[in-house]
Every structure is written in structure tokens, then in C-alpha cells.
Design a protein around this nucleic acid. Sequence first.
DNA 1: CGGAATTATGACTCCAGGTCAATCAACGGT
DNA 2: ACCGTTGATTGACCTGGAGTCATAATTCCG
Lengths: 204, 204
Amino acid sequence: MAIAMEHFAAHGYEGARAEAIAAAAGVSKGAVFGYFGSKAGLFLAAYQSATRTFSRYLDAPASVLDQGFFSTISYWLANTPHMIHEDWIPYRVVLIGSYCSDLALKREITKYMQQEDPYGTREFVEFGVECGEVRRDIEIELIISLVDWLIDRCQDAIVTEELDPGLFGYFTQSAQMREQRVRQFVELLRSAISAPDTSTGSSQ
Amino acid sequence: MAIAMEHFAAHGYEGARAEAIAAAAGVSKGAVFGYFGSKAGLFLAAYQSATRTFSRYLDAPASVLDQGFFSTISYWLANTPHMIHEDWIPYRVVLIGSYCSDLALKREITKYMQQEDPYGTREFVEFGVECGEVRRDIEIELIISLVDWLIDRCQDAIVTEELDPGLFGYFTQSAQMREQRVRQFVELLRSAISAPDTSTGSSQ
DNA sequence: CGGAATTATGACTCCAGGTCAATCAACGGT
DNA sequence: ACCGTTGATTGACCTGGAGTCATAATTCCG
């Protein structure tokens, strides 16, 4: 599976060769198709494997969690470039899964993400609600989806040139600029979903 | 181009056959590859053509625009199922473009969307800023991206079963439920980017 | 140890993207 | 009106990778 991830990461979905993956894994092509059914099935397995290598939101250090929900988001976004750099193979696979052209495969991915919630977005948002930082007047399903959508896209834009609509310029802009944008992004998210009554002073 | 759109919409990116498109258009395969360079190039042209068939935000009826920025968003979201039903071929092509697996192609799409802004998101957000409904304390680039991201995903989830993480259930839930979710979604967006309308306390 | 059941193999088929030498059509100079 | 040049068009051909399947290898029991 790690080998499949490497190949998909290196060559993309179309570019990856089922036979090459089989050979690198020391099995025959027939075995791969027998087990995974198709290239899409192989990719799905690689995708699931990749998502499981990443931390869940609540895996942040206790000192960060203690500072609350939005601080934890800031923590993860601030660490995104570093984490991705450390772990770029699974990240790349997840990226391909997020933007894959085959809608049948995409449906499988959506279903998997919904069922397994490998990053623990649900429990994280519930944590936010419990500690009073996230509003209760909106259905939690919607907030979970919003958090998922925005953080995914923000992370992708931060570290993937192809997906950045000029916001972060990972390769062209200064780190300061990026940090400012991330801060503003979290501010937007906070405005969207924070509980109306916040005793904490909002800006640093 | 309309013919290419039909084929991509009907069979997906992988499933569409360059030769079949050429034949349906009454030209040879060689001509297609000569003109568009590759299947990806052909798709990009179809994608651009598809985006241009859709209305821009500010094309809403004057009576809607008069009610302001967020009312206009509600209007478009409420009409999404109807519009997509009327126009499902270009919609499907755009959808494929949004979730295509080839990152090289995705980059071209991102660049195009950023340069041409075919839905007029920028002018729409500027409109929102001018009529005082959208906050000015966050860089407009970020707000434009946020609006783009969220409305895209919301629309996709509304009308595309494959992409709905259980929120709208276009084929399974009641219309009432969907309307409620859309209303809450707009409420979230409003919280995120609306200007504080009580007293304009300048905060930074 | 032998034979059944299961699994693995890789040569093979099929098919779609991409190429290119040959052909055709348009144009303009004489 | 003719012909040569130039550029566009064609479709047979090539390439290579997904997916198949008859055969071989291995395992599993009695």
C-alpha cells in the first residue's frame, strides 16, 4: 500500500501504472486486479491508507487543546507546511483523491470520509461546542461540513501551487504574508461559527 | 464545443472518447488533436465554454439585487436545483473540472477562473462591500475565495449526490429540509463576512 | 504422499490517446 | 485557365496500459 501511495503521489492518478506498482510490491499484476478489482479500487485503498496516516484534529498537543477550538485550528494551519513537507506522499494521494475526475470514485471517497471521519472533524467540532466556542444554533452537520470544506481548501491552497487562487503564494510570497492570510482566514471561520457570547478577547 | 460538452457530461472525463467527439462534430480526430493538442486541452476548452453559459452573480433580477448581497446569494442558491436542471450539460462539465484528477489540468482551470472570473465573484463581492453588507476589515481576495469555495461546494452538494456529505439529500430528503439547510448555510456565510451593521466600530 | 482447492502468474486482448505521411483545398502569380 | 506552394485535414497506424484468463504454483487436508 505504501508503494501504491508512492506511485500515485509521484505520477498522479492517470500517470501511475498498475503493473509498475505490482512489480514494486513484488506481486503480479493479476494479483493486484484480483484483490482491488480495478485501478480505481487500488487508488481508493491507497487513499484510505493515506488518510489514516494523518493526525486527527484532537491529536494536537494538550497545551494547544487547552487553549480552545480556534487556537487548535490555528495550530494545525500554522503547521500545515511543515506537516505536509514531512508527509508529502500521503498528502499528495489525498490531494488526488480530492480532485479526481471519476465521480464514481469520488462518491466512494465521500462515503468513506463520512463514515470513517479519519481526521475526527465531528468529534473536534463537538469539542468546540462543548467548550462553548462553537455556536449551537446551527445544525452541527452543517458546521462540520463547513469546517471540512474550508480547512481542506485552505490547506490545499497553502501548499499546492496548482490550487492557490493567488492567496498564499507558497513559492512566491513572504512567510509573513502567508501568516497574515492564515490569521485572517481563521478570523473568518471564527466569525462564521463561533458562539455569540465569547468571554475571551478575540484579537491578539 | 457544445458536442464536446455533451460527451464529457454524459461519460465523464475518462469515459469521453476523443474520436467520438470528433466524429459527432463532423471533423477528424487529427483535426481535434491538431487544434486542442490533447484530450486535456479539449476538455479545458469545453470547461471554459461551459462556465460562460452560466449567469454571473450580478445577473440576478434587479428586484433581487436591490435587496442586497446576501439576499442575492439566497436567490441563487434557492434557484440552484432549477438552474442545474435546465442546464445540466455545462453544469456537469464544470463539475468534472472541479474534481479532475490531473493537477496540471487543474492548474490551468484555477488560472482561468482567476483571470476570467466567469461568474463575476469579484465584482459581486465588491458590490457587497459597497452597499455596506460585507466587512472591509479582511482582505477582499480572501473573501472572494471564501465565497467561491463555499458556494461551489454548497451547490455541488445540493445537486450532486456523489458530493453530498449527507447535508441536502436531493433525492432522499424533503424540500423543506433542504431549504432549512440552505438558510442556515447562508446564515453561516453571513456571520463570516458581513459587516457589523450596528455601530461601525473600527477594529483591526 | 496425492489430489483437491485455492491463489498467483504473465502472456494476451482490447482499445483509446496520440502521430504523421499522404491528401486535399485555397490562394496567388503568371 | 493553369500550376505550384502553402497550410489544413485526414485516417491508418503506432503505443502502451487496463483488464482477462488459461495455466502454473502453492497450500491444505485426509
